[in-house]
Amino acid sequence: MNIGSIAMGAGFLLVLIGLWGILTRTHIIQIIVSFSVVDTGVHLIMVAAGYMHQRTAPIISEGLAASDAPSLVVDPLPQALVLTAIVIGLGVTALMLAFALRIHEKNDTLEIKNIERLRW
């Protein structure tokens, strides 16, 4: 069990917790928070995917010549991906909050049970 596995496991756990929140909380803000938890869990999973034991950050410097990089650095790609994913998550969350404001204005409530629905 190294730190990668721990991060991976924690990521999955966070996703589960977030899902529980999304499916059981009835307040819209709480649902949004739960969604952020799920998102964070996924980011953790992504970072863990790039983790390699006893390697260093993928930055060439005095201590790390370009030629040694393949054997010394962790996988840089998941880090690039997680950056993108985080920003996307941020945008989505902000937009959800904006929707929450609008929902409150239209329905005078933030309880997901009470907002008007389309059915069948």
Binding site: G4, M8, M52, H53, P58, S67, V73, D75, P76, L77
Partner: peptide, 28 residues
């Protein structure tokens, strides 16, 4: 899941050639 011991396909390319390709020290 197991933490890999070697960089995989694209990653090893990035690690080996980024500096030469782009001149960037920060691979990410």
């Amino acid at each position: 899941y197991e933490t890999p011991l070697e960089l995989s396909g694209s990653a090893s390319y990035y690690a080996a050639s980024t500096a030469e390709d782009t001149g960037s020290a920060n691979l990410v």
